[in-house]
């Protein structure tokens, strides 16, 4: 563990908590892409199956359980509890165009052709594009509530901090994982446009 990864995990946790609070407090999921949240649940499910097979640390196991619970909790709030506020009309990104290429790519490019490894690789690829429906929805509605933009800023920062973690681990532990690094860079680059808007003028209330 290093400070970059710890800050990244905290930023990730913060993003998920901000989202849950936004939906719970406003009792509305307006402006939030349910499709992205479904993709995140698939990402965590595919990646954290090793919860049952390999124990890394209490921190690792607890965080995995928190991310899984929060992502399914968000889906419950969006599609069941506050279903009426879900904005179907603007949440239209075709997620099959994200899932299928990730499935194919994880079968072609991976570290080891075993079920858990393929699922992990699939989850890494899918996570890098999982935010696209949300960014697409924000661009379509032309605005985002300030709380939603804070959510996106925290979520985008988490993987950017992980890139610093990978640089640190490369020099300090000569450990690196090309698949995670390339996907992490793609994921962070997708936020660049949003980061620019968020930092320059705060995209809410346009």
């Amino acid at each position: 563990m290093n400070v970059f990864r710890l800050l990244g995990d905290i930023s990730h946790l913060l993003a998920i908590i901000i989202l849950l609070l936004k939906i719970w407090k406003t009792r509305s999921c307006a402006g939030i892409s349910g499709r992205s949240q479904v993709l995140f649940a698939v990402v965590y499910t595919a990646r954290y199956l090793d919860l049952f097979t390999s124990y890394i640390s209490a921190y690792n196991s607890i965080m995995k359980l928190v991310f899984l619970a929060a992502s399914y909790g968000t889906i419950y709030l969006m599609f069941i509890k506050f279903k009426a506020s879900y904005d179907h009309n603007h949440d239209t990104f075709r997620i099959e165009f994200l899932i299928l290429p990730c499935v194919l790519l994880s079968l072609l490019i991976n570290h080891e052709f075993s079920p858990l490894e393929i699922l992990w690789t699939f989850s890494i690829y899918l996570e890098s594009v999982a935010i696209l429906p949300q960014l697409f929805m924000v661009s379509k509605t032309g605005e985002a509530e300030s709380i939603t933009s804070h959510y996106l800023f925290a979520l985008g920062s988490y993987r950017a901090l992980y890139i610093l973690n990978w640089i640190y681990r490369y020099y300090a532990e000569s450990h690196y994982d090309v698949i995670a690094i390339v996907a992490g860079i793609v994921q962070t680059v997708l936020y660049c446009d949003f980061f620019y808007l968020y930092i320059t003028k705060g995209i809410y209330g346009q």
């Binding site: 890394i56 080891e112 075993s114 858990l116 490894e117 992990w120 973690n165 450990h175």
Partner: peptide, 10 residues
């Protein structure tokens, strides 16, 4: 080569 038990990241 990176394998499963190396996966200590979230």
């Amino acid at each position: 080569d990176v394998n499963l038990d190396d996966k200590d990241e979230l």
